[in-house]
């Protein structure tokens, strides 16, 4: 962040120099040339870090006692007993990492049954930390009945209490670290389901398309985004290249062409953030496997799919897809 501020200051200083040059009419062409070349060659303002919304700092996870903003809140019948909650840390070191990062995870279910259970690895969205997504994880833990499947959720590096700076590659490395942890507990690939929501769809899609430690058996994407290129084009109206603002390479619309696993797509028709037409439909259309199913949830905005769909309908849909 300090580096970005430093760069921004430098850019501003050059702009001021340029404007001073304008107002004084002194060697305007030299100032123009100097400023243009300097800024073009030295500028490196990028908006990549804005992908990661880690602004809400916490000192501990509160789970059901969390009182901050959430997309929805489940009633008491969805409570998870303490004995079925396992908060832990794991080390994550993957592609491009020079050191390992301690990241936090929450496993919902019986640890001793991972070797024989089916587990849903939930890759959450870009916001804050696991407390924000706790209700979602609990809901998924009720798919097919309470604790029918195990659920693993992690905070990517930089999120919640997890170490390190967030990054695109970090998302993939951390999700893969979660798979390594599941593998170490005896989980087989045939019983691994990966579920991505919003930003988490990038990790879920990437690791399904190009498996690392494990190859997920099925893929579920809720409100996926297509790519940075689509975001750029949507934001600009004009078909502006994403490279004008970001170096992010996230490209679900292309990656999913490599996904041969069964695919379940869920998206709200009123998603006012990642539009169903320019994002979700493109990802769905490009799936490279044999089986896929789509659930367009009428009237649901981004983040409101489970609540608008109805928790029971949502759970039934997931269950049918998983056991199909």
């Amino acid at each position: 962040m300090n580096k970005q501020i430093e760069i921004a200051t430098k850019a501003l200083r050059l702009q001021v120099l340029f404007l001073i040059g304008i107002s004084s009419k002194v060697s305007m062409h030299k100032v123009l040339l100097f400023t243009s070349l300097s800024l073009l060659l030295t500028s490196c303002l990028r908006l990549d870090s804005n992908l990661f919304n880690v602004s809400d700092k916490i000192t501990e996870y509160k789970w059901d006692n969390y009182t901050g903003e959430q997309d929805f809140k489940l009633d008491a019948s969805y409570k998870i007993q303490d004995s079925m909650m396992y908060q832990f840390t794991m080390d994550s070191k993957g592609n491009g990492d020079t050191k390992s990062y301690k990241i936090y995870g929450m496993y919902i279910g019986d640890l001793n049954r991972i070797a024989t259970d089916t587990v849903i690895l939930y890759c959450h969205g870009n916001k804050w930390h696991m407390d924000f997504y706790w209700q979602r994880a609990k809901l998924i833990a009720h798919t097919g009945g309470k604790h029918r499947f195990g659920v693993l959720m992690i905070d990517y590096r930089g999120y919640g209490l997890s170490d390190g700076p967030p990054s695109e590659e970090g998302l993939y490395n951390d999700a893969d670290a979660a798979m390594q942890w599941l593998k170490s507990k005896g989980l087989s690939e045939q019983r691994l389901i990966i579920y991505g929501f919003s930003m988490g769809t990038s990790a879920a899609t990437e690791l399904s398309a190009t498996p690392r430690s494990m190859r997920p058996h099925k893929l579920i994407l809720e409100a996926p985004f297509a790519s940075a290129a689509v975001m750029s084009a949507d934001g600009a109206g004009l078909n502006v290249p994403a490279s004008y603002t970001t170096n992010l390479k996230i490209d679900n619309a292309e990656e999913i062409k490599k996904v041969k696993q069964d695919f379940c797509w869920i998206h709200g028709t009123q998603d006012n953030f990642l539009g169903i037409k320019t994002h979700g439909e493109v990802v769905y259309k490009n799936h490279g496997g044999m089986y896929k199913e789509a659930h367009r949830i009428q009237g649901a905005d981004h983040g409101q799919v489970p609540a608008t769909f109805g928790f029971q309908n949502y759970n039934e849909t997931l269950y049918k897809f998983i056991v199909k």
Partner: peptide
Amino acid sequence: MIKKHSSLFLFLVTSLLFAC
């Protein structure tokens, strides 16, 4: 959604209408 999901892809703000 930027209200709710804050800075997620605020980067598009700047990509918007470079022509502006």
